[in-house]
Design a protein around this nucleic acid. Structure first.
Lengths: 215, 215
DNA sequence: CCTACCGATCGGTAGG
DNA sequence: CCTACCGATCGGTAGG
C-alpha cells in the first residue's frame, strides 16, 4: 500500500526566521494516532501498518518507535483513547436523560453515534479480538460506561428481580451494539429501510423497552 | 506463523496394494476450506494466509491455486458456504416455532448458536468489511433467512403499521446479532452473568418482544 | 528523528 | 500438485 504524506501532517518546516517548527505542535505521537485512525478506517485493524502510519505522518519508518514500543502499543493507546471518549459520551447521555427509560435511550443513541463517528476507535475497542488470543483484551475502563446502564435499568425496574434486570441489561447492550455494528458494516442496506439513524434507533429502543412496572 | 500439517489432513498415502489415495476423498478444495476455517478461528480473517492453509492441509504453497483463483476467491467460497448453513438453520428454526413469537425466538437462538458453533464462518460473513472497500460485500443470499424474520414479525403484529413492524425487525436482528457478537468476543465476561447462553437469550428475547396486540 | 538494513512472510507465477 | 522463485511488505533494530 503506497501512502503519501498527508498534507495536513507535514514535515517540520522552518519559519522565515529559521527556527525549526515541531511536528504538529510538537506531537508526532498524536499525529501517528491520527494517521492510524485514518488507515484503520480505510483498511481495518489488521490492514494497518506502522510503516504506513509513519509515511502518512511524513516521518521515517523508524520514527514511531520513539513514541511506541511496538505496533501493539500504538493499538493499545488507540483503544484507551477510544474508551475515554466512549465512556464520556455515555456518562453525558446518562446525565442528560431525565427519566430512567430516557437515560437508557440516550445512552443507546450515544453508543451508536460514537460508533458512527469514530468507527476506527470502535473497531479497535470491540472488533479486535479477531482470534481468542489476539493480544488486545478487554479494557477494564470499559466497565465505567457499562455500569451506568446497570444503574439506569435498576431505576427503570425497581421492583424487578436481579435476574430480570440482568436480562434487560443484556438486551439493551446487545441491541445497541448489534445496531451499531450492522450499521457500520452496511448490513442494513438493501434489507431494511433506515431513514435517519438516530430516530430509527430511538423508535426501536422505545418499542423494545418494557415500561416500568409492567414486567 | 509456523503451521504444521494437520494430522487429520494427511498427504496422500499409498495403500498396501500401492494405489495412490486422493486427498481427503479427492477433495483438496474441501481440505483447504477446512484449514482456512481453523486458521480464521485462531487468527482472524486478516490473519490467515493461503500459505498457512496449504501447509495445514499438507500441500505446497502453489497447490491452492488449482482450486481457487486467489485468496479472495477462497474467502468468497467460505462466505457462501456459511450463508447456506446459516440460512438453513434459520429456516429450520422458523419451521419449528409454532407461534409467531416462538418462531422469532427460535430463529434468534439459531442465529446465535450458528455464530457460536461456526465462529469463523460468522466472521467471514459479517465481520469482514474491515474497510468500506474490503472486497467482500454482503452476499445476496443473506436475505433468504432474513425474509423469514420479516414474515414472523408480520404474523406477530398483524395489525401494526409497516413502520412499527420494520422497527421490530431491526430490533430483533440487532439484538440477536449484538448478543452473538459480544458473546464471541467475550465482551460479557466480567461484566454480566451469563449462565447457559441459549436460555439467557431466550429470556432476553421474550422479555423484549412485544406481545401481539399490545403495540 | 533518519538512513540503511535484516529476517520473515505473503500473494502469486513459471515451468514443469 | 511440486519446486523454485519474484517482488512487495512488514515489524523491528543498529547506529548514528
Amino acid at each position: 500500500m503506497k501512502i503519501l504524506p498527508d498534507s495536513t501532517m507535514q514535515r517540520p518546516k522552518r519559519t522565515q526566521s529559521g527556527e525549526k517548527q515541531p511536528y504538529h505542535h510538537g506531537d508526532l505521537r498524536a499525529a501517528l494516532l491520527k494517521a492510524a485512525l485514518l488507515l484503520i478506517d480505510r483498511h481495518g485493524v489488521k490492514g494497518f501498518s506502522l510503516k504506513d502510519a509513519a509515511a502518512l505522518a511524513g516521518v521515517s519508518t523508524a520514527a514511531p518507535y520513539r513514541h511506541f514500543a511496538d505496533k501493539q502499543a500504538l493499538l493499545y493507546a488507540l483503544q484507551g483513547e477510544g474508551f475515554v471518549l466512549f465512556n464520556a459520551a455515555l456518562a453525558e447521555a446518562f446525565a442528560r436523560g431525565e427519566t430512567a427509560s430516557s437515560k437508557i435511550v440516550e445512552m443507546g443513541v450515544a453508543y451508536v453515534l460514537f460508533a458512527l463517528h469514530h468507527p476506527a476507535h470502535f473497531r479497535v475497542m470491540f472488533g479486535l479480538n479477531a482470534g481468542p488470543e489476539s493480544g488486545l483484551g478487554p479494557d477494564p475502563s470499559r466497565a465505567s460506561g457499562f455500569l451506568l446502564l446497570v444503574e439506569a435499568v435498576a431505576a427503570l425496574l425497581p421492583e424487578a428481580s436481579a435476574a430480570v434486570r440482568n436480562d434487560l441489561v443484556i438486551a439493551a447492550w446487545s441491541l445497541v451494539h448489534g445496531f451499531a455494528w450492522l450499521q457500520i458494516e452496511g448490513a442494513f442496506a438493501g434489507s431494511v429501510e433506515i431513514g435517519d439513524v438516530e430516530s430509527q434507533l430511538r423508535r426501536t429502543l422505545t418499542l423494545t423497552l418494557p415500561r416500568a412496572g409492567q414486567s
